[in-house]
Design a protein around this nucleic acid. Sequence first.
DNA 1: ACCAGTTCTGAAAGCGCTTTCAGCAATCAG
DNA 2: CTGATTGCTGAAAGCGCTTTCAGAACTGGT
Lengths: 353, 353
Amino acid sequence: MCLFTRLMKALSKLRHAGLTLEDVARIADVSPATVSRCLNRPETVNVKKRERVLAAVERLGYVPHGAARALASRQSRMVGVVFPSIDNSLFGAALDAFQRTMADAGYTVIVASSAYDPELETQHIRRMLQSGIDALMLVGTERPDTTYRMIHARNIPYVTVWRTPGESSHPSIGFDNVQAAKHLSNYLIGLGHRRIAFFSGHLEHNDRARDRLEGVRQSHTQSGFTFDDSLILQRPFGVDGGRHMLRACTALPSPPTAIICGAEPFAYGAIFEAAALGIGVPAEISVAAFDDTWLAAQISPKLTTVRTPNLEIGEEAARYLIARLAGENAPPALPLDTELIIRESTAPPSQPR
Amino acid sequence: MCLFTRLMKALSKLRHAGLTLEDVARIADVSPATVSRCLNRPETVNVKKRERVLAAVERLGYVPHGAARALASRQSRMVGVVFPSIDNSLFGAALDAFQRTMADAGYTVIVASSAYDPELETQHIRRMLQSGIDALMLVGTERPDTTYRMIHARNIPYVTVWRTPGESSHPSIGFDNVQAAKHLSNYLIGLGHRRIAFFSGHLEHNDRARDRLEGVRQSHTQSGFTFDDSLILQRPFGVDGGRHMLRACTALPSPPTAIICGAEPFAYGAIFEAAALGIGVPAEISVAAFDDTWLAAQISPKLTTVRTPNLEIGEEAARYLIARLAGENAPPALPLDTELIIRESTAPPSQPR
DNA sequence: ACCAGTTCTGAAAGCGCTTTCAGCAATCAG
DNA sequence: CTGATTGCTGAAAGCGCTTTCAGAACTGGT
């Protein structure tokens, strides 16, 4: 029996290549249960014994086995994030902040990128649920009911970001896209613009973009103007999309005098292309956008844009989930503020009509 | 006993809020072992029985419990990545590719950002090892021996990226930073430049940056010129660093005629600041860099830069790890190619001496 | 010196899955 | 028709940890 046990232990060593809690227990001359307690709720263990155990842990370089821990305690201390894209400083900033806050609370973050593909998103969510994540963060609220059912079935806290709680029934941390867009549009209308184009990625699977468009619409209506739907352009996300759309809309019989870009890369593209075409910004056409990523204040002309609280979103989302995970019934944070930052890319139209 | 069992089951349901493999087994009228086999090695199960089981899985919406699986099978199907920064399209692209390739092979990716802080990196690695990752990807090879020992102790495959195998004894996927820098420097020297500045982030914890500097040095030596160490500037990573360094070095008594930026954001900063200062690029000073991220070809003047295979690095690293995980003793891929892309930001110096 | 109350501790029972192993049935060679 | 082989299957033994529970070891009040 003793031989057998030893053999098994040796074998286990070979495969696992790591110490078990039992090894630590033996060295510290306590029971495995006590070692476990030292690691999880140290205050419940006699101080002398605790020191002995921790010393043994240190000396052996023992690292607990996460899966075993997760299985026994029913929590993995991992949280999942599915973002439309991570190769984008917008989400990058939020992710960074989220990750940092989570790490401070002892959680590990799993990330996946859905590439703006709803089906891929579902797949990632399923895989993460399966990995046993304790919580989940998603962008926007638009996704099939079946997906939400999957999440509810696991009964874990989750949070959607980049929109406000008001805009859906899901716990949500973000800002009011409609208001932000309305504010920007009002500013442009105030400058005298009457033909405003809206540059966007595909609206179909992007509730944030649709919200922003809605804000532009409302701004027009409430100012007594009509928004020309033919000035809504859609292209794949990226600078090139912006270049294309600028070319397309300057070629129109009655071109717009201002452009609102649903995302900043479109604005860069528009400004770069305008420069290449010899079209003055803002002299001949004004350009404005959302997000205020690092480039906005660097290019020339400096971009008028709506600063969105990207970092804060990541941080608040983490804080909310941590609170839920701790059993607190915290409400999701209030809507965060956006700020219209007026720089050089917007001006009154050259020939006001 | 039966009552007790039932009670336990019910309780488990409440907490886990999910089906167990046993539930599926009961519905499909087979043993749990068979269900497990259906999920893992379906070909070993009689086809009729298998269909019955899979139907039950489908019908119940059963999702296996990852931690239990990991514990029993000794593999978590998760791989870890620690990057210096994820809010950076450089690493973003690689991460995206890595993640996609890994997902296709059924692996989940855990990411953490070390913010270029070696201590934070160690901490993240420890945490990931603890989470039970099956493999690990790290940037560069410079880190304490203790960290590598931790990894070896777990006996999991790992790969370092952004350098070539030759540059260290660790499995490595990337390109030859020294050669790439030498090539770029040679080009500048060939144009007639004799005073070349090197803009860099902190060299201390960045082997890639040091390699690039080394390449610039070698290029000078082999061309018979001496590289002026006082032209090595270091600032925190980012556009602002580039702006500062440009200002600093144009104020020098004998300013450089060309700048090599160890990372692209410095080049953007330099070009933006030069524009603000009315310094002509490349008329008065040439600017070149590494990485060829999306912005390089968009700004004006278009940036001369070394295209680095960011995406390929992510993909190849994933492929390598997948092969190792499958038990193949694959060697890490060959060094990847870089390409000097000559655009508009470099030209012969105005007054060659 | 004794008992109630308090603090700690170790034994043991799982957590939900994989995997080994023995056994049964079906198949095949002789 | 027999014995050996093959293909599938279910029982059962863990994987390495947490957590419950009962009891040991103290504490202080009387």
